[in-house]
């Protein structure tokens, strides 16, 4: 990892009064997996759409491989690959026909294209289904062909926009392993996700984005330092009890820094779990609030997000 392949400065995008991206600045180094982590609607896809020359920025600049994304978009598009969040394939064509078509769009042809198609089909484990129509594929298989299209022309920088949304755990595992293989082969990947675990597993560096702003950037270790030694107590409440109704109750407990609710669970950010736990249980008993179980979590990106925004990542 050395010089940056991508640099953005104060990148912005507005739709009328709605500011979707509010001045994002970051760099992606050659050979790394850089994740943009943030909840739905945070501005991840809009950022990628601008960087892939699909949308014109409302302000700011970005360079990829030394080419400005606005004034030199053709050269940018030659060196990037894009795996969109949605399956962007022709379902009535076979996998091979799809790859041949998209390869042609990247100026590939003849034997070189044919050989590369065979290569990527093997890479995504779909060589046996090459001549089947995409419409007959499962969601996970379509996702893999979707990725294969992005890899076809061996891009220097690959944008992967939430590539594991809506697929089964087995396909998800395959895709995550594939992304790591790509990094091992020297490809640079800009990966967006709202899954904290994926960002933790894959990323060399992570940028946390929320409401169109990049609120933290660094390696996982650097980011978790932000929350210090904070731990998270995750309380699973009894049936019929909403976490939202009891947040204020627990913020008053000694050692509890903040409290948030998500799907019936309560997440308490604490300085020391062992120290805060007796007070939390005592308070719950005092108001007859049933607690089914308690998880103690070490500092992670979820905690970082919670610390920075006061909200859980999946809010």
């Amino acid at each position: 990892m050395s010089e940056p392949i991508l640099t953005t400065k104060d990148l912005r995008k507005s739709y009328g009064d709605l500011e979707a991206v509010k001045g994002v600045s970051f760099s992606v180094l050659r050979g790394e997996i850089f994740s943009l982590l943030g909840p739905n609607g945070a501005g991840k896809t809009t950022t990628i759409s601008m960087l892939s020359c699909l949308l014109s920025p409302s302000g700011g600049t970005a360079e990829i491989g030394g080419h400005d994304i606005i004034s030199n978009s053709l050269d940018v598009r030659k060196i990037i690959g894009v795996v969109p969040q949605e399956i962007a394939l022709y379902e009535e064509l076979t996998a091979r026909q799809n790859l041949h078509f998209w390869g042609s769009m990247y100026n590939m042809s003849g034997k070189a294209l044919k050989a590369r198609i065979d290569e990527v089909l093997t890479q995504v484990n779909l060589a046996e289904r090459a001549n089947d129509r995409v419409s007959t594929f499962s969601g996970g298989m379509k996702r893999r062909i979707n990725i294969a299209v992005g890899l076809l022309h061996k891009p220097q920088l690959l944008f992967m926009d939430e590539p594991t949304v809506g697929i089964d755990p087995q396909s998800r595992r395959r895709i995550l392993d594939m992304v790591k293989e790509l990094r091992d082969q020297g490809m640079t990947v800009l990966y967006t996700t709202h899954y904290m675990e994926e960002a933790e597993e894959l990323s060399d560096r992570v940028g946390i984005i929320d409401h169109g702003k990049l609120i933290a950037l660094g390696t996982q270790a650097e980011l978790t330092k932000v929350v210090g030694q904070q731990e998270t107590l995750r309380l699973h409440l009894g049936e019929g009890h909403l976490a939202e109704d009891h947040l204020e109750l627990f913020t008053a407990v000694q050692g509890v820094l903040s409290a948030t609710a998500l799907n019936g669970e309560m997440a308490l950010s604490v300085t020391e779990a062992e120290e805060a736990l007796p007070g939390v249980i005592s308070k719950a008993n005092a108001v007859a609030l049933p607690i089914r179980s308690i998880d103690i979590e070490e500092p992670n990106l979820e905690a970082v997000f919670l610390h920075l925004t006061g909200r859980a990542l999946r809010d």
């Binding site: 759409s49 892939s52 699909l54 053709l74 990037i80 894009v82 962007a88 022709y90 769009m105 100026n107």
Partner: peptide, 14 residues
């Protein structure tokens, strides 16, 4: 609607 147009527009094609 199928998002293939967006994908076409990010290829080096005018």
């Amino acid at each position: 609607d199928d998002r293939t147009l967006a994908r076409l527009l990010v290829t080096p094609s005018s």
